[in-house]
């Protein structure tokens, strides 16, 4: 056990835990988190591949309003440690990621509840006009979120590798094979969540078009992106809801709010 490896892995875990709540720099997204863990554990290619696969699964995991999504942070960090540090297979890592995402979700709900007490402590200090105290409590709550992932990471790191290998070897072949097959399918849930948020009857047309065009292998994603942007711009130009009063002289303030803002700016 290399002490530098352990420090780096725990540091990445802490970072991912903080990002799990902040949702800004995206250190908690599998493609970043697993790659970093892989680099820290000296097994970067496995981390990269695991991250790519988990990223597809986690595409639709998003916190909306006060609802808490499955936790990408714990799923990525813990399964990346198992794969890149303890030597589990990538398909095993994916299968384990799902229960880990739920465990992480429970943990963040716990911390978010605990933080209510911090909010009340902040109120008391605020009546004294103390900026320092508000800052202290705020960052303290962030540290708790970091520990939420760092502590499980330390626990998983400290499990003897032999135990992990034995446990993984004990999984029968039909289950490992089945989980690998299922891993390829559960991406669909992420897609469904994203679609479910955006879909209106009119927009299904564009989904259908994308599906039909996807059969043309020569069109890579950059080409598809260009087609998509063109479609979006055309839609905005021609959709009736953005063109009210088009022929009737218009009002004096002009039609396009973007122009108005840019003129004022």
């Amino acid at each position: 056990m290399d002490i530098i490896t352990i420090v780096l892995v725990v540091f990445v875990a802490f970072l991912a835990g903080m990002e799990g709540i902040l949702d800004q720099f995206q250190f908690h997204q599998p493609i970043v988190a697993c790659t970093l863990i892989g680099l820290a554990a000296g097994n970067p290619m496995q981390g990269l591949l695991l991250g790519g696969t988990l990223q597809l699964i986690a595409l639709g995991w998003m916190n909306i309003g006060a609802a808490v999504a499955p936790d990408a942070a714990l799923a990525s960090i813990a399964s990346a440690i198992l794969v890149t540090y303890h030597g589990a297979g990538i398909s095993e890592g994916i299968a384990l990621a799902i229960p880990l995402a739920i465990a992480g979700q429970v943990l963040t709900i716990f911390v978010r509840t605990l933080t209510v007490a911090i909010a009340h402590a902040t109120d008391r200090k605020a009546t004294e006009g103390s900026f320092r105290a508000v800052e202290f409590y705020h960052i303290g709550a962030l540290m708790l979120q970091g520990l939420r992932i760092a502590i499980p990471a330390i626990i998983i790191l400290s499990v003897p590798p032999q135990l992990v290998t034995d446990a993984l070897n004990a999984i029968p072949a039909w289950l490992t094979g089945g989980l690998a097959v299922a891993g390829g399918m559960i991406v669909a849930v992420g897609y469904a969540m994203v679609i479910n948020m955006m879909a209106t009857p009119k927009l299904w047309l564009f989904f259908a078009l994308g599906f039909a065009l996807s059969a043309i292998g020569e069109l890579n994603l950059i080409a598809m992106g260009i087609i998509g942007v063109v479609l979006a711009l055309l839609y905005l130009q021609f959709a009736p809801e953005f063109n009210q009063g088009g022929g009737g002289g218009g009002n004096s303030s002009g039609g396009d709010p973007l122009d108005d803002i840019l003129n004022d700016y």
């Binding site: 991406v187 897609y191 955006m198 564009f206 994308g210 994603l221 598809m224 998509g228 942007v229 953005f242």
Partner: peptide, 22 residues
């Protein structure tokens, strides 16, 4: 929002068959 949703739905249509392994 509308423009982003058009792009998003289109790309989803592309990704679903390409990256789901069945």
């Amino acid at each position: 929002t509308q423009g982003a949703s058009v792009l998003g739905m289109f790309i989803m249509g592309v990704l679903v068959p390409r990256w789901t392994n069945m």
